[in-house]
Amino acid sequence: MEKLVQKIGLKHGSGGRAMRQLIEEVFLELASPVDGIGLSALDDGAALRIGDQWLVVTTDSHVVHPIFFPGGDIGRISVSGTVNDLAMMGATEPMGLTCAVILEDGFPRADLERIRDSMKATALEAGAPFVTGDTKVVGRGDADGIFINTTGVALTRRVVTDAGLRAGDLLIITGTIGDHGMAIMSKRHDLGLQGDLRSDVAPINGLIRAALAAGGDDVVAMKDPTRGGVAGSLHEMAAKGKVGVLIDEQAVPVRDEVRAAGDMLGIDPLLVANEGKAVIGVRAASAGKVLAALRAHPLGRDAAIFARALGERPGAVILDTGLGKRLLAEPEGELLPRIC
């Protein structure tokens, strides 16, 4: 028996087991029954029945450091994250976004405007209008520069959850993995790596729309592999679907830059955060169609079938390296460069 933690640590925010445990121990109290998918499902968002449609609602707070990084900034993440969470529930046409900003006393106006411009451009890309917002300023040291919360709402006729996998389903990753987290880590720890390490942050609702159009009801589960990486997403999908998942490591698309940085720092790209990718579970018969549709989209050119759901070992994520197999553990806490 693990004892209850008395103080919150950084690991409780990093998308792994510790975070899920904290949510289950503390916040599940708040869940109440709804007609649809509510808090107790611990999915990317909620889905509430409205007539013959579903209103999907999702909310996300963004606290990235550094706030400007190669490939993006906190503004682009704050829009993409929420648009993508809606898309993961099957709702690819956002009706509206909210924007709540908490600023630290002394934050430069120029930076704020730069972030605003980035949010505007990203929202345009996603076809997601901002409809309301809120601004607060706190004292110096009470926040780290800027925190942004966005909430999104969208309607859909069919909800896709992260619990729909069955034995025999195939899993598709929509592109190369680890780009965002590796770019941030390289910058944050000042590792002196030269090369094109850049975040993949992007709204992928258009890409997901193409996948859903191609696969229809055979698209059975989706998850965006942000914190916790692909490994974290697969653990959740395996546990909720009560299936095992077997990954073919050779089939996982990884850019050379990310692979090289991962080798050097002792970090497995499967554990590293993405901000513009999805893991999509598809009935095997439709996997080819969905893959072709994804590859035809500019954000899905590197999409690949990389794993399949098994009837055995429910909840386990197993990696076939081509040389042997191992259990892929869930990430715990912030990823750090290793020396051994």
């Binding site: 076939d320 259990l327 553990a329």
Partner: peptide, 20 residues
């Protein structure tokens, strides 16, 4: 502690799948 013993994965997912 994590896996409840030393896991034996030799037979998992066999027979080998044909997908990429």
């Amino acid at each position: 502690h994590t896996y409840g013993g030393a896991p034996d994965l030799r037979g998992v997912g066999l027979p080998a799948s044909s997908e990429g």
